[in-house]
Design a protein around this nucleic acid. Structure first.
Length: 272
DNA sequence: CGACTTTGACCAGCGC
DNA sequence: GCGCTGGTCAAAGTCG
């Protein structure tokens, strides 16, 4: 497997990411775009639903909505889209500002988290090309890891998507990327949906990630699940890898995907 | 000169 | 209450 600089590892099997494993990757990805409802339902059913009473704090990954399917994601997404959590805080904000020219966020309520999804990618580079433009706004050393975690934000003004990138402690060759929120715009770098998948000029962009390369008709069809739109593209591959890694996901819908993925995935992977 | 990165500081949440 | 950690801000620096 040295042919590619990187390869995604979806079964999230590193010890460090056990937490990730426990939760529905699909849900996080919102992959239903490609797989269709039946599959999702299966996945959703399998998902560890986070008890409402318990805060969804598990770092990446887990904010698996308690509700099956994406109803909660949908609503979350809409919030996410408008996502201007800060505005209503103006007054409080002022007080805080006076105090310190810092963070407008924070208020009486807990910070609302956007739907997040994480995935692991075997890569030598930390910041994978995913078709969107990101601006780094922070970096922190992480506990229990020699590798720092980088924080990125989508540079598009109206887009509040963020992502965190860190290397796996257990396997430095693996990059754990966590996306938060949804893109409210098409990919500025890869404007041609048709390029998605079939023209993998770069392994990185190939499963780089949530590039919005979903065919227009598809997007239209699934408009109400904005979150999935962003991710729709990468999932083909991610999804499949996840599937082949996860023995717990039987299902016809899987087969359905094979057709779509054949030109993307190595035959041996398909077999698996 | 604008866009982006680096980096130190600050704040909130959480566990003890 | 206190300390730790994650997440974010914003000034300064860097690059094209």
């Amino acid at each position: 497997m040295n042919n590619f600089p990187l390869q995604s590892t979806f079964d999230l099997c590193s010890s460090e990411d056990e937490k990730i494993r426990s939760l529905g990757f699909m849900d996080l990805l919102g992959v239903q775009d490609l797989i269709g409802p039946p599959f999702l339902e299966i996945m959703a059913a399998q998902q560890v639903s986070t008890p409402p009473s318990k805060k969804i704090e598990s770092p990446e990954v887990i904010n698996q909505p308690a509700t099956p399917k994406f109803s909660s994601i949908s609503s979350a997404s809409s919030e996410a889209v408008n996502d201007e959590p800060v505005k209503e805080d103006d007054q409080e904000e002022n007080q805080q500002k006076t105090k310190k020219q810092l963070k407008p966020k924070k208020t009486n309520q807990k910070r609302q988290r956007e739907p997040r999804f994480a995935f692991m990618t075997k890569s030598e580079v930390d910041h994978l090309e995913d078709g969107y433009r990101w601006r780094k706004y922070g970096q922190k050393a992480v506990k229990n890891s020699p590798f720092p975690r980088s924080y990125y934000r989508c540079t598009t003004a109206s887009c509040n998507v963020k992502k965190r990138v860190e290397r796996s402690f257990s396997d430095p060759s693996i990059v754990v990327t966590t996306y938060e929120g949804q893109h409210t715009h098409p990919s500025p770098i890869m404007p041609h949906p048709s390029l998605c998948g079939s023209h993998l000029t770069s392994p990185i962009s190939a499963f780089g990630m949530p590039t919005q390369k979903t065919p227009p008709h598809y997007q239209h069809q699934h408009q109400q699940r904005p979150f999935t739109d962003n991710i729709g593209s990468m999932n083909a591959r991610f999804l499949h890898e996840k599937l082949i890694c996860s023995t717990s996901v039987p299902g016809p819908s899987l087969l359905k995907d094979h057709g779509l993925l054949q030109d993307i995935l190595p035959s041996h992977m398909l077999k698996e």
